[in-house]
Computed example of a mutant assay.
Amino acid sequence: MASYTVQAGEWGVHGITLTASEITTVHFPDDVDEIEVLSHDGAAPIYFTVDGSQPAIEGRASRIIPASISAATVQPPTAGPTVVKLISAGAPKVSVTRT
């Protein structure tokens, strides 16, 4: 399980490769208004949450980026520190940034 912290004044983490079936966590210690999750290579679908809850592959409570080079922009529904969690059945390369 990989974990990254993005401090205030930093934009995000870029070009990280997810490990199949393992959750990757990106912590923003501040309250972020909007998050972008970008799939660099479209190698596999990416399932994610922006409220700190656990994502699941094909999970009904998870957001999804399909297996394509694309991005999703989401407003976290929580106040306080923002926690993004991602999982995939494959090993896509992703970036997670504040917008």
Score class of each variant (00 low, 15 high):
Tyr4Phe: 15
Asp33Lys: 14
Arg98Val: 10
Met1Val: 12
Ala79Tyr: 11
Phe48Gly: 10
Asp41Glu: 11
Gly90Thr: 09
Asp30Lys: 04
Ser68Pro: 06
Leu18Gln: 08
Ser3Tyr: 10
Ala71Glu: 10
Pro45Glu: 14
Ser21His: 14
Gly42Met: 13
Pro76Phe: 01
Ser70Phe: 11
Met1Trp: 08
Asp33His: 07
Tyr4His: 13
Gly42Phe: 13
Val32Met: 04
Pro45Tyr: 12
Ser70Tyr: 10
Ile16Pro: 09
Arg63Gly: 03
Pro76Lys: 01
Trp11Gln: 10
Pro81Thr: 10
Thr99Asn: 02
Ser88Gln: 01
Asp51Trp: 13
Val13Lys: 01
Gln7Val: 04
Asp30Leu: 05
Ser88Asn: 01
Thr17Val: 14
Ser70Thr: 15
Thr19Phe: 12
Gln7Asp: 06
Glu10Trp: 03
Ala43Asn: 04
Ala79Phe: 11
His14Trp: 10
Ala2Tyr: 06
Ala43Met: 06
Ile35Gly: 00
Thr25Ala: 06
Ile46Val: 15
Arg63Met: 04
Ala44His: 07
Glu34Lys: 05
Leu86Trp: 03
Thr5Gly: 02
Ser62Val: 13
Glu22Lys: 14
Gly42Val: 14
Gly80Tyr: 12
Gln75Asn: 09
Pro29Ser: 04
Ala71Gln: 13
Gly59Phe: 07
Asp33Ala: 14
Glu10Gln: 15
Lys85Arg: 15
Glu10Phe: 06
Arg60Tyr: 11
Val96Trp: 01
Leu86Phe: 09
Ile65Gly: 01
Thr49Glu: 11
Glu58Gly: 13
Ala20Met: 08
Thr49Gly: 09
Ala67Cys: 00
Val94Ile: 15
Pro76Ser: 05
Glu22Asp: 13
Thr97Asn: 09
Val96Glu: 02
Val32Pro: 02
Ala71His: 12
Val37Gln: 02
Ala71Cys: 09
His40Pro: 07
Arg98Asn: 04
Ile46Pro: 05
Ser68Arg: 14
Ser39Asn: 08
Val96Ser: 02
Pro92Arg: 00
Ser3Met: 09
Phe28Asp: 07
Val74Lys: 06
Ala89Asp: 15
Asp51Gln: 06
Gly42Pro: 07
Ser62Glu: 12
Gly52Asn: 03
Pro77Ser: 13
Leu18Thr: 12
Ser3Glu: 14
Ser39Met: 09
Ala91Asn: 13
Val50Tyr: 01
Ala8Gln: 13
Ala71Ile: 03
Ile69Met: 13
Val84Ile: 14
Ala72Trp: 10
Phe48Pro: 08
Ala79Cys: 07
Ser53Gly: 09
